[in-house]
Write a protein that binds this DNA or RNA. Structure first.
Lengths: 179, 179
DNA sequence: GAGGACATATATCATATTGATATATCACCT
DNA sequence: AGGTGATATATCAATATGATATATGTCCTC
């Protein structure tokens, strides 16, 4: 069997707080979640249909607005499935870093190429780190309000710590390659 | 268009050093490369055929041994394609961390679940860190021999620095959740 | 030397994901 | 009236994953 559909769990997790449409879900994933998990319309919409036919979510009556938009709510079975997944300690954690792949094969070209790739990586990391820091600062203010905010904060902190380590590594890597 | 086939570049990079079979390539990816890029038979074998028909690699005459095994060598066109890719500064770098996804939604269950997931994550990171450290120690010894080894070492160092940051984060996360 | 376990070697398939594109409405500004 | 960009859903080709199928070679043990 191929890997389980994690997008199902992302959807259930997001719906556990509030009713949402597919479009809303995509926007949310693109925000806070995207740095550790991705989602696309191409898997969100089919997943919504599957979850509905499996009884894990229910579709609300078309909203009153003029535009076609259907929101979904989580069912009890859905909440149970979400909990089961949370309680399963086995998790897939993987990196897909093309920058490291290029560095690994950098012996095939001169060192300037390697340095350029590291410089581009550093630039991206610096930009993303600034975003994460702003996000975490906002979350820290509201951490007392609910446990959820604490968890959101901790995922952001993970990114901050990682990215800071990446920047330190860039220093070392640049020095090593130049020497 | 869907994302470019990076497996092609992994194969070209590996073949740029030595002739190999699909099986050899898989083994190599599973070793040093797997912590930042994955490959499977399901995409390696089709990619070998595509690369061959595109003239980027050539298949050697079946080897003398009794078992079916064909090795491939890189062509000049293949080496050029590899360089072009190396010189393209745009790279896809992404995380897929189910542990963070679970943590993000941990408000749906009690804090014990969150702590268990972090503990499992920590255990895995500690094990992988030990492997990476052993790998890096071996590479440091032979770093003078060729530029390649320096690059291999730097990718391992990236893993070590990241994983050490992860472990620090685990400490903070556990304390925060318990308090 | 028969049998089992495991590594070697290639191939294929169902499922999952990505990234792009298509289509259409709505909100806002000029 | 026209343009831009956000909202909203849907679908598709290309790609990747993980499992399975098939078969041979090697090594150890009983």
């Amino acid at each position: 069997m191929a890997r389980e559909k994690r997008i199902d769990m992302v959807i259930l997790g997001l719906l556990s707080h509030e009713e949402r449409s597919g479009y809303d879900i995509k926007k949310q994933i693109d925000g806070a979640i995207s740095f550790f998990w991705k989602g696309s319309f191409g898997n969100i919409y089919p997943a919504l249909k599957d979850l509905e036919s499996g009884g894990l979510i229910e579709r609300n009556a078309s909203n009153s607005g003029p535009r076609e938009k259907h929101t979904y709510r989580i069912t009890e079975a859905g909440a149970e499935a979400l909990k089961q997944w949370l309680r399963n300690e086995q998790s897939v954690n993987e990196l897909r870093y093309e920058t490291l792949l290029k560095l690994f094969f950098s012996g095939c070209d001169d060192r300037k190429t390697a340095l350029k790739n590291i410089a581009a990586f550093r630039k991206k990391v610096e930009a993303d780190l600034a975003i994460l820091k702003g996000y975490a600062a906002n979350l820290e203010k509201v951490r007392e309000e609910s446990a959820d905010h604490t968890y959101y904060y901790l995922t952001a902190l993970f990114g901050i710590k990682s990215y800071e380590a990446y920047l330190e590594w860039c220093e070392t890597a640049e020095k090593t390659i130049k020497s």
